[in-house]
């Protein structure tokens, strides 16, 4: 599908394969990829995180506020905070037994409200310090894209070979059997949400390094494309099926689509319609209905 898409876009719009569009693609890719990796972790558990893009905006604003005083340490501190925010979502979700979309929808309101409050609704310019090297180029490829792939490989290794990875899939495949076989499902879900928060923090770092501006709302429009990337890649929202490789493909499809639509002159205004429908259609194709007794 990815190959077909690239071929299709190139045929319709030969300029797509030119350096400029490919560069845009390489610049957009790491940001969406970080968000979709976090989202994938939560979706593998059969949950969803509607707050992760808002947390990314919140992280970017905090980094902008703290960069002058704390420098690189500020970035590390913010990533720790976003991981904590994710853990908080996971804890509330499991402890109160409230659907994850509901908790994280509330989180979306809280963190985007706080981001706007802290920044007083304005965009802040930020000196990314060390992080600015993320968008230096090695052989013409932004370092961030390389770093993203390295993180992905490490994460894929963790999921495939560590106990945590196996437990994550076990809980996603069936929480009750997993709990009865001694997996602490509460803890696994909490860690899953914390990982989503961690990736939101990384995405915030990529964002400020790329734009050198932190706006309280920039990342918010990436919530839907990131979810679409995960599901298009073939990770089912019912949980337990999917992985890093699929999400990488899904993210590339979404990134090519975004850049391709721009190159092809499709107005930005209509893009939410396309991604909204794409998300619904890909869920319809990948969902495992036998796992759901009733569909609410």
């Amino acid at each position: 599908m990815l190959v077909a898409l690239v071929a299709g876009v190139s045929l319709l719009e030969p300029s797509f394969l030119k350096a400029a569009s490919l560069r845009t693609l390489a610049e957009q890719f790491p940001l969406i990829f970080m968000l979709s990796m976090g989202q994938m972790t939560v979706i593998l558990l059969g949950r969803i995180d509607l707050a992760n893009a808002a947390v990314t905006s919140f992280a970017a604003i905090l980094m902008a506020k703290w960069a002058p005083d704390l420098g690189t340490f500020g970035i590390v501190a913010v990533i720790a905070i976003t991981s904590g925010i994710g853990a908080l979502h996971g804890w509330l979700h499991m402890r109160a037994q409230v659907a994850s979309f509901m908790i994280t929808l509330g989180g979306l309101g809280v963190w985007s409200g706080l981001a706007l409050f802290i920044s007083e609704g304005r965009s802040l310019s930020v000196d990314p310090g060390v992080a600015s090297r993320l968008f230096d180029r090695t052989l013409g490829i932004p370092n961030a894209a390389i770093a993203a792939v390295v993180v992905a490989v490490g994460y894929a290794y963790l999921l495939a070979n560590c106990t945590f990875g196996r437990r994550l899939f076990a809980v996603g495949n069936g929480q009750r059997p997993a709990s009865l076989s001694g997996v602490n499902a509460d803890r696994i879900v909490l860690i899953g949400f914390a990982i989503s928060g961690f990736f939101s923090g990384l995405a915030g770092t990529v964002l400020i390094a790329w734009l050198e501006i932190a706006s309280p709302t920039t990342a918010n429009s990436l919530l839907l494309p990131a979810i679409a990337a995960v599901i298009l890649g073939g990770t089912a929202i019912t949980g337990g099926v999917g992985g890093v490789g699929r999400t990488l493909i899904g993210t590339l499809i979404v990134a090519v689509l975004r850049v391709g639509l721009d190159v092809a002159g499709v107005e930005t205004s209509i893009q939410p319609v396309i991604f909204g429908m794409l998300a619904i259609v890909s869920v319809a194709v990948t969902i495992d209905r036998s796992r759901l007794p009733v569909i609410k």
Partner: peptide, 23 residues
């Protein structure tokens, strides 16, 4: 009829609606 959880469908339609308005 397509048996997709309502939060997912309506989440997608949220953005479809905003896109229509922007258009």
């Amino acid at each position: 009829y397509l048996r997709i959880p309502s939060f997912m469908v309506t989440f997608g339609m949220w953005f479809v609606g905003i896109g229509v308005a922007q258009r």
